[in-house]
């Protein structure tokens, strides 16, 4: 089943590096997933996070406020 990955962040440097980590992991391991960037603050607040960037996989907040390593993202996606 295809996973839905959302990256919540208003466009700060950390959010960009999280996006690139996630994109790399998805393409390197050919994972079936769609990546969506959520940049609108009102949308972000619906997830009840206080620190960005946050990684949401299938509507579950998995990481917030920091940039994860590739290994960590891969583990979360499997």
């Amino acid at each position: 089943m295809s996973k839905v990955i959302k990256i919540l962040g208003t466009g700060c440097p950390k959010c960009k590096s999280m996006t690139s980590v996630v994109k790399d992991v998805v393409s390197e391991n050919s994972i079936d997933a769609t990546i969506e960037k959520v940049e609108d603050i009102m949308e972000i607040m619906k997830f009840n996070v206080m620190t960005t960037p946050a990684l949401v996989i299938d509507d579950v907040i998995t990481i917030k406020g920091r940039v994860p390593s590739k290994a960590e993202v891969l583990a979360l996606l499997n």
Partner: peptide, 15 residues
């Protein structure tokens, strides 16, 4: 401090 976090933090606190 990250200027881009100040708004989510603000809302989070108020909420």
């Amino acid at each position: 401090f990250c200027s881009c976090s100040s708004v989510p933090l603000f809302i989070g606190f108020v909420q």
